[in-house]
Computed example of a mutant assay.
Amino acid sequence: MSLRISAAIERWPVAGQFIIARGAKTYVDVLVVAVSDGSHVGLGEGTAIYYRGETAENCLAQVETILPVLEPLDTDEARKQVQFLLPAGAARNALDCALWDLAAKAAGQPVWRLAGLLAQPRPLTTAFTISLGDAAVMEADAAKAAAQGFSLLKLKLTGEGDYARVAAVKSGAPEARLIVDANESWGHLDIAAEAASLATLGVEMIEQPVPAGQDSLLAGVRSPLPVVADESCHSAADVARLAPYYDGINIKLDKAGGLTEALKLAEAAEAAGMKIMVGCMLSTSLGIAPAFCVAQGADWVDLDGPALLAEDRPDGFVFADGMVSADK
């Protein structure tokens, strides 16, 4: 059996703006890969990890470069080879997930069953991201999100004025659970003191306070809140290095390079006694579908990528009452 593989870039507008400490986005370009065995077509989507120098264009080029190697193979062998032919990142994610989807369709089974889940994935409470902005703007955005039913809010922070931002969000959505993403901006701060102050506002977790590669800044830090690695953690091989400094990891399939590595990453984190968050980049429902399987065992779920877009794919995930669900 041989494969036919195609890849293309799609542009999806963001609802308003998505703002973090590194800048703002008004759209996201995603890489979509389609793999056919002649009878079935598997689809996968990846969003470039921009802080690692990826673009949708260079991810597309990565896929196109290895097509002559993959197309003569069968589905299982192609997925094995992709793990070695491409580095962890969005290109490998899109290919890997397309091959999982193709294998599932060919077998007449859902991806979750092939991935080893014992039961059909259930709806999950997902965080909704409150973009970085002035405290008053974030307060208004939080109130709007709460009115839409989101009960878990993830705040983007910047290392300056963070307490005021969190306090404003708490005022706008007093019943919501809060987690924060420092996006590597706290390297110059007293992290324990920052965490303690945010704990008084009900924050329950801090994501990536220090720059990736400077994780040892967390050595000896006694944070009253769990600290989760995001930009510092990409593959299962990172877990042993990060375990002394972090309480958990954020698994994103675009970072890990696909569902294959994400499952290994979850297993490694569980073995190390670390908490698990499953997140996503800006993406459509095609992008979060395999992550939804991994998220079934997570402590925190942040799969709001499609909810942040102006529109999603037809028959995408349902976001209602703060939950993400595959039920149509």
Rank of each mutant, 00 (worst) to 15 (best):
V203P: 00
A243M: 05
L218V: 05
V63G: 02
T75P: 05
V32S: 03
A269N: 02
K156D: 09
D96F: 05
V33S: 01
G305V: 07
W12K: 04
K170R: 15
S285E: 07
A192E: 08
K328L: 14
E311N: 11
E267D: 13
G89C: 06
L60W: 02
S197I: 00
E261M: 07
V210R: 07
T284I: 06
K154E: 08
A219E: 15
F84H: 14
L309T: 04
Q214K: 14
S285W: 06
P290E: 09
A136C: 04
V33G: 02
V41Y: 06
A24E: 15
A173E: 11
C293A: 13
A61F: 15
T129R: 08
P244Y: 03
T125D: 12
E207M: 12
G257N: 06
G305R: 04
A192I: 00
D101P: 00
A98F: 02
C59L: 10
L132S: 02
T26F: 06
A243F: 01
A266M: 13
A142K: 07
V35P: 00
L31Q: 05
S131V: 08
Y245P: 02
L265V: 09
T126N: 13
G108T: 07
L242V: 05
G108Q: 10
A115L: 08
A173W: 07
G273E: 06
A268R: 09
C293L: 11
T200M: 03
I9T: 06
W12R: 13
I276T: 00
Q62I: 02
A256F: 03
D190M: 10
K328F: 13
Q296N: 10
D29E: 14
F319T: 05
S197F: 03
T65K: 14
I66G: 00
C97V: 10
P224V: 01
Q109H: 11
H234L: 14
Q296F: 08
G248L: 05
V180C: 14
V203K: 00
A142G: 15
G116F: 00
Q296S: 08
D181L: 09
A135L: 09
I249A: 04
C59Y: 11
A94K: 04
D315C: 12
A98R: 07
L73M: 14
E45C: 04
M205R: 05
I251R: 02
I66F: 05
T260P: 02
D181E: 14
A310H: 13
N183G: 03
L85N: 05
P121C: 06
A212R: 14
D302F: 08
F317T: 06
D37G: 07
A147V: 01
L189Q: 10
C59A: 14
L43R: 15
S185T: 15
L286H: 03
L153H: 01
A106H: 11
M274T: 01
G287N: 07
A56R: 03
V137P: 04
A295E: 04
S283E: 14
K328P: 09
S171K: 15
S235I: 15
R52S: 11
A115D: 03
R122K: 15
V294P: 01
D238K: 06
A34F: 01
A240E: 12
M1P: 11
G258F: 01
E311H: 12
L153M: 05
